[in-house]
Design a protein around this nucleic acid. Structure first.
Length: 732
DNA sequence: AGCACGCCGACT
DNA sequence: GTCGGCGTGCTC
């Protein structure tokens, strides 16, 4: 804020830097009209080009701007300002991810209607007056409203079981007076003493350590490493309680899909109230109320997906990142960040502890713990041991499925037994659709995506061929487009739809359900289906990785992994880690009730370290091996080598861009070329057909690359994306 | 990111 | 003759 008024001259224009939700490198300067007060953090409405936008008054000065260009701030919203910690957090993320601060600020301003206070609503309260005549309807209303509290007109009518005209009549006679009711809280205040969990000695020790960390107000990260059923949730609930006891807000981050009814209930069982929810499926009105009430401090605990990190907390005192290894914490588009790492940063800035929890921690968190940057708390499996599933591999070389099928006789036998016991089976296959490749048996033609050259996946339910990279889809033809032969197209390999077909063939009377992310009806439908399964409304579930998370299925005693090798073959240095995490989670779906339960992994590589780790339960050996393997390969345990990945619609196109870049920007020498099948889907989703993905072990390396790239011209500028796989060590 | 301006292909 | 595609440039 400049206010260098000098006597005797016309008052100079007061101005303020404002961060607008746009990819500008610095805040813009706006005129502050006379009589208006703004401070850093104030949320304001400002003119920007042809429209008006919400922006945040910022701390840093801007470059001098021609005073004639300055436009005045239109309005200061009646809203608690964004606190200084959050503003530093925005600057930090912008600098770290090499994105524009305005774009980071945009993530804070995602609830436009919440900048104005929630309106008070009209309510009715009983007066001493008596009605002229008494009727049974009127009597019911009076009885209902006898509590002396304010009721809404329709709420009262509904509660009394009468039409609202009855209430209107009583109001007109003065039996009710109109009062204004403040906005209703979205959730009740949690009570830390509501129902303390019974903790084992192990759990209690970890809970005590977390409570001490919260009480001492010191920053620091604790990795809770505990197998499914070891009580991680109960333990970190005690950390949440500690933060609440100290009058601080708490944030629990969960992968989107894990935010289920079941989790909220579990929280309610401990605290007597639900946490506020925050995820992409929240209705707009609720979204605004949650945002506003977080800003005002009336919401004390939020359970949310990664974007909850950008809620306007005023007194945040703890962040818990559950399932910290989950790739869903990564945002790849726009501002690329990993919410788990940004949570660590937020804790550091705010001077409060952060808890990471997982049954299968990421390698980078394990290394950070091993090297002493994070504290590590291992929860033993003692609680869970009794109900741990019996895990075995099925060697597909020795016991292959019947011709044309994908389920081995051993798995089918166990499914039959499970059905006979009226328990549930889960078949896991991480591939949507019917078949991943379609070819012509006559001429060998393979169906390829015209836009990005990867194989088209047949979706038989929809009668379409779909590209899983760019979303291209076409009707499945009856004749080969190459040789014109009819009825000789053959589907190669299994997808969940095809496995479902096989299951129905074997068990026609079983209730079978397929769950994958292309399920019609979106997240809401999915949550309903998951709850239906938990309630026993299906016998056999066939699902992609979304069945791995979030929900407990109390009657699910058999888990079959249709293709445990899937995902090990690609060149990703994280392939083994990811597969281990995924298979651990899926097999963990079996047996959480103390019933005898079984997990069967169909594989061609029963001796692969991932299979051995899953079957033996020896995760420690697996982690040490993975860490050593990366060191041996010259890869850092975190992220990938610094460098640039050029990705385009086709590999040839990418090679062309890479060639041009090497010439234009010799400093950016370490250029890798990826075809569409190897590059993240997000890269190909945009309008531009190529992207540069800058991966870095060190941020300084990437800055060098990016400077060189920007020098290569504006066409490149629009295509640069910075990877989220940046060295997490530099956070601390 | 939005939005306007501006230049080349198929159509009420 | 126009409608409309997306490439380019600008926003205090």
């Amino acid at each position: 804020m400049t206010d260098d008024s000098r006597p005797g001259r016309p008052a100079p224009v007061r101005s303020a830097p404002v961060l607008v939700p746009m990819p500008a490198e610095r805040p813009y300067t706006y005129q502050v009209p006379d009589g208006m007060d703004v401070a850093p953090g104030s949320i304001v409405r400002v003119p920007l080009g042809p429209r008006e936008v919400a922006g945040i008054v910022w701390d840093s000065a801007t470059d001098p701007v021609d005073p004639k260009k300055l436009k005045p701030i239109s309005e200061v919203f009646d809203c608690p300002p964004i606190d200084q910690e959050t503003r530093r957090f925005v600057d930090w993320i912008a600098s770290y991810t090499l994105s524009a601060p305005g774009m980071v600020a945009r993530m804070l301003l995602r609830a436009p209607a919440a900048f104005d206070p929630e309106p008070w609503t009209e309510g009715l309260r009983r007066t001493d007056a008596v009605p002229d005549r008494m009727t049974s309807a009127r009597a019911r209303v009076l009885e209902t409203a006898d509590d002396g509290l304010a009721w809404t007109r329709s709420g009262l009518a509904h509660a009394a079981g009468v039409s609202s005209t009855v209430v209107d009549g009583l109001r007109d006679q003065g039996v009710f007076e109109t009062v204004m009711i403040p906005p209703r809280p979205v959730v009740a205040v949690p009570d830390t003493g509501y129902a303390r969990s019974e903790l084992s000695a192990d759990q209690q020790a970890v809970a005590d350590a977390l409570r001490a960390a919260v009480d001492n107000g010191g920053p620091g990260v604790t990795l809770i490493d505990g197998v499914t059923g070891s009580g991680k949730t109960e333990v970190y609930f005690e950390a949440v309680a500690a933060a609440l006891d100290r009058n601080r807000q708490a944030l629990i981050l969960l992968p989107e899909i894990a935010l289920t009814h079941a989790f909220l209930e579990r929280f309610q069982d401990r605290f007597g109230a639900k946490p506020a929810e925050w995820h992409s499926d929240l209705p707009p009105r609720m979204r605004e109320r949650v945002w506003r009430q977080v800003a005002e401090g009336s919401v004390r605990v939020v359970a949310g997906a990664r974007s909850a990190l950008f809620l306007p907390f005023q007194e945040l005192g703890l962040i818990v990142v559950d399932e910290e290894h989950d790739p869903a914490y990564k945002q790849e588009d726009r501002v690329p960040y990993n919410a788990r790492d940004m949570a660590v940063v937020r804790g550091h800035i705010g001077g409060f502890p952060v808890v990471l929890a997982s049954a299968t921690p990421s390698i980078e968190s394990r290394v950070n713990a091993d090297q002493g940057r994070y504290a590590r708390a291992v929860l033993s499996a003692r609680f869970a041991e009794a109900s741990l599933p019996d895990l075995r591999t099925i060697d597909l070389r020795r016991a292959p499925p019947a011709r044309g099928g994908f389920l081995s006789p051993a798995l089918l036998t166990e499914m039959r037994n499970t059905l006979a016991r009226q328990e549930q089976s889960l078949l896991f296959l991480n591939r949507r659709g019917y078949a991943p490749l379609t070819l012509c048996r006559v001429c060998g033609h393979r169906f390829q995506c015209p836009d990005c050259s990867s194989w088209l996946v047949e979706h038989r339910f929809r009668g379409q061929l779909v590209c899983h990279h760019c979303g291209h889809h076409e009707k499945r033809p009856d004749a080969c487009p190459e040789c014109g032969t009819f009825d000789h197209l053959v589907a190669c390999g299994p997808g969940v739809e095809r496995v479902a077909e096989e299951v129905v063939g074997h068990f026609p009377d079983a209730r079978t359900i397929v769950l994958s992310s292309d399920l019609l009806g979106g997240v809401k439908r999915l949550r309903l289906e998951l709850e239906a399964i938990a309630n026993g409304e299906a016998d056999i579930v066939i699902g992609t990785q979304l069945v791995a998370k979030g929900h407990n299925f109390p009657n699910m005693t058999l888990v079959g992994i249709v293709d445990a090798d899937l995902g090990l073959a690609n060149g990703d240095p994280r392939a083994a880690e990811r597969t281990f995490q995924l298979l651990s989670q899926v097999t963990g779906r079996a047996g959480r009730t103390g019933k005898k339960s079984l997990g069967l992994l169909q594989t061609y590589q029963p001796d692969h370290p991932v299979m051995r780790a899953i079957v033996s339960g020896d995760a420690e050996a697996f982690y040490q091996r993975e860490i050593a393997e990366r060191e041996r390969a010259g890869l850092p345990p975190f992220g990938r080598l610094a460098g640039i990945i050029v990705s385009a619609a086709t590999r040839a196109e990418a090679e062309g861009h890479a060639w041009a870049l090497r010439r234009a920007a010799p400093a950016a020498a370490d250029i890798q070329v990826l075809g569409p099948a190897e590059a993240p889907i997000a890269l190909l989703a945009g309008r531009h057909r190529f992207r540069l993905l800058v991966h870095g072990e060190r941020r300084s390396d990437m800055q060098g690359f990016i400077r060189a790239l920007l020098a290569a011209g504006p066409k490149v500028r629009g295509s640069v994306r910075v990877s989220v796989d940046i060295d997490p060590q530099s956070f601390l």
